[in-house]
Simulated assay, not measured.
Amino acid sequence: MNHPSRNVYNFNAGPSALPTAVLEKAQQELTNFNQSGMSVMELSHRSKTYEAVHNEAIDRLKKLYDIPNDYEVIFVQGGASLQFSMIPMNFLTKDTKAGYIMTGSWSEKAFKETALFGTGYKIASSKDDAYRHIPTVSAEDVNEDDAYVHLTTNNTIYGTQWQEYPDFGNVPVIADMSSDIMSKPIDVSKFDMIYAGAQKNLGPSGVTVVIIKKSLLEKANEQVPTILKYQTHVDSNSLYNTPPTFGIYMLGEVLKWIDMQGGLETIQKVNKEKATYIYDVIDESNGFYIGHADKASRSLMNITFRLKDEALEKQFLEEAAEKGFVGLNGHRSVGGCRASTYNAVPTEACLALSEFMKEFQAKHA
């Protein structure tokens, strides 16, 4: 339910909605965390009080994803954007190649960084289709000696999402899950590395989660600056330098909240229901609303659509803002409309948006 003091419907793409219960708990503990007399933001990151917060967040993440013992979980900074560089810096050489599956702006940015460290190639791309779909790929499309394959599991700008993950045999698979991490159960063992900025489904901006297989770590380059080595953060339990302590505290609280909702299977069920309310209006509008993504590639996290003309689209966004809908503008690079329905966006918000969309169509069709 919406809290009386939170009288907007937050559909921002990131930083995005956080669970009200988590924000309220953080508010209660803000000046005196765990009877320490200090805020969690004031605690030394070397203190036992903070260490408990830090380790509990890691343990909860491992539990929710049932992460196998041959993986490490670390927290780093710099967002997913730093990972675009760190990945080839650590795992690509001038003599190796890495394959990238191009599904949108973030995979484009990740691919661009490979040229600084080795050779990247495009396995497949849906750019010619305005990134409306997820390409079909398989082990036959990659080289057996590739350093890794990189994919982006959910594409915030274009509203597409992988429904099933391909098998690339023995080639390591690295996935940017920034915008759909913890939105559904996954088999972590299908990936050699998963990374995600926290500001969509896990907490505030400033924390990046990395789940990395130990066998991939063993292949890492040695000639890398210390703070940019994954092994550095593994060896120091993500405490090599001062971590974003408040962000990690909030991440841990969000993971607790996910657990309390019934875990990832329940979260996935609710996310499907929320997205269906909005997609149904689009599909039943007879072209008044035009979905961007092909139905087989639709995202449960980012619902992208346009109206039949730009003037009407502008009016739709203006009237939506007047009624308390926040963040419905599409990304500046593509325009249109976008409703980001991350875990913490309540069902009530999606229902309210679907009703508004019906009412707007009835007035302007």
Rank of each mutant, 00 (worst) to 15 (best):
N143D: 15
S238P: 00
P346V: 09
S5E: 11
F288C: 04
L312Q: 05
M1K: 15
T304F: 08
H292I: 03
I58V: 13
L216E: 01
A110Y: 03
I278S: 00
G37C: 05
P225W: 07
K97T: 12
K274W: 03
V53P: 04
V207L: 03
N329V: 10
Y342C: 15
A321F: 07
I267W: 08
K190R: 12
G118T: 01
E253Q: 11
K190I: 07
K94L: 14
W257C: 02
S16T: 09
T136R: 10
S297P: 07
S236T: 08
T341D: 07
D192C: 05
N90P: 02
I87F: 05
M301R: 06
V345D: 11
L312S: 05
G335C: 08
L116Q: 14
E42I: 07
K358M: 10
G287C: 00
M260G: 15
A296V: 06
S39A: 03
L202R: 02
Q361F: 08
I67R: 13
D145E: 13
A175E: 04
G104M: 02
K274D: 04
D141K: 07
L64Y: 08
H233E: 02
K314E: 09
L23Q: 14
K363Y: 12
K269V: 13
K190D: 11
D294G: 14
M38T: 11
N90Q: 04
N286L: 06
E284M: 07
A80P: 10
V76A: 04
N155W: 05
V207G: 00
M357H: 06
V224H: 02
P185G: 10
I174S: 01
L23S: 13
K314L: 09
E265T: 10
G206S: 01
V326H: 09
S36C: 02
K127N: 12
P19K: 05
H45Q: 15
W257L: 05
